[in-house]
Computed example of a mutant assay.
Amino acid sequence: MSFIHGYDPDTMREIVDPAQCKERLAEIGEQRSLVSMLERVWLLKVLGETEEALTLSEQSVRFARMAGTRKDLLRARILHATVVQARGAYAAAHQELTTCAEEAEGQGWSALAAFALQHRGRVSFDAAEYEDARSDFKRTLFLRQESGAPESQLQNVLLAIDLCDRRRAQTAVAS
Results as ranks from 00 to 15, higher is better:
Glu30Trp: 07
Asp165Gln: 15
Gly106Pro: 05
Trp42Val: 03
Arg167Lys: 15
Asp8Trp: 02
His5Ala: 07
Asp126Arg: 10
Gln20Lys: 13
Arg77Val: 00
Val123Ile: 08
Val41Thr: 10
Arg75Ser: 09
Ala76Asp: 03
Gln31Phe: 01
Arg167Trp: 04
Ser57Pro: 00
Gln118Asp: 03
Phe63Asn: 03
Arg166Thr: 07
Thr11Asn: 10
Ser2Asn: 13
Lys138Gly: 11
Trp42Glu: 06
Ala67Pro: 00
Phe63Lys: 04
Gly148Cys: 08
Ala116Met: 11
Phe115Ser: 14
Leu163Met: 09
Arg134Tyr: 03
Gln59Lys: 05
Lys138Ser: 14
Cys21Lys: 06
Gly121Thr: 14
Ala53Gly: 08
Asp136Tyr: 05
Gly88Phe: 05
Glu39Asp: 08
Arg168Pro: 00
Ala64Arg: 09
Val16His: 12
Leu163His: 06
Asp162Phe: 04
Met37Ser: 10
Gly148Ser: 13
Arg168Ile: 08
Leu117Trp: 12
Leu97Glu: 09
Ser124Thr: 01
Arg24Asp: 12
Ala89Lys: 04
Ser175Thr: 08
Phe3Ser: 05
Arg166Tyr: 08
Lys22Gly: 06
His80Glu: 07
Glu14Trp: 02
Ser33Phe: 04
Leu43Asn: 08
Glu96Thr: 12
Thr55Glu: 12
Lys138Asn: 10
Lys22Ile: 02
Glu30Leu: 11
